[in-house]
Nucleic acid binder design. Structure first.
Lengths: 124, 124
DNA sequence: AGTTTGGTCAACCATTTGGTTGAATATGCG
DNA sequence: CGCATATTCAACCAAATGGTTGACCAAACT
């Protein structure tokens, strides 16, 4: 079924899905929303509460996350519940690892990265 | 030292570096460039060759990838060599994997931090 | 020295993005 | 019914993105 006219990496590289997933992740508000949904499903209004931003703006962010497949939204009554859907994330993560040819997880590198972030923030 | 006023995941969520890495990955041309550099280091002109796009456009893409830390560029003679730098990818990948395993999230601390940020911003 | 080659810069353009506000659409409650 | 709550829609705006072209600079070839 898969035509081999172009190399294997091509399909992964050109995928529109990866476009939307990575674009969705490239915003700190949306990453914060994902982190909040990690704890529990939430209604749109509750998602919006900690942010200094209109409800409509958060609604747009949620639409972007939904189109990327990173969350799902189910309307029960008059409240719309948002649920994390880690599968899209996992797919992109797997793609990155296969692509980057590095070892599955290097936690040391991650902690160094975090410490750099925090000390950089202290200097501000 | 690393201050633990807010939870560890927060720095990952708010990091500007993740912004630039994910934004850089959210473009198929740039992902294709990364895949090409996976095979070998390349000169800018050779990177541009397979694309139906001006050299200047590719040059911009390479600047974006460089700022994201995903590649490095070294000028030898009059040709500028591009080299894949998988470390930035690794950090982002590890961040993403955090969503596969359900780590606890401290939402209260997140809200407190946002409030601090906002009042600090008002004073500026 | 003169010319080609490798690459960036600057100005411009169309489209997208991330936000706003105010009106609209459901849904639930007294 | 009449009103409050939850969420989206529509129009708008400023800034960022992804591309173009032509001028420009630096290194190499003859």
């Amino acid at each position: 079924m898969v035509d081999q006219t172009f190399p294997l990496w091509f399909s992964g590289v050109m995928s529109d899905d990866l476009d939307t997933v990575f674009a969705a992740l490239a915003d700190p508000t949306r990453r914060a929303i994902l982190a909040m949904l990690l704890e529990d499903d939430m209604a749109v209004t509750d998602v919006a509460e900690p942010f200094e931003m209109s409800l409509a703006a958060i609604s747009k962010h949620l639409t972007i996350l939904t189109r990327a497949g990173l969350i799902s939204q189910e309307k029960r009554g008059r409240v719309k519940w948002c649920k994390l859907e880690p599968d899209a994330l996992r797919a992109a993560s797997v793609w990155m690892q296969g692509f980057g040819q590095f070892e599955p997880v290097n936690l040391d590198a991650f902690e160094r990265f975090l410490e750099n972030q925090l000390s950089a923030g202290d200097e501000a």
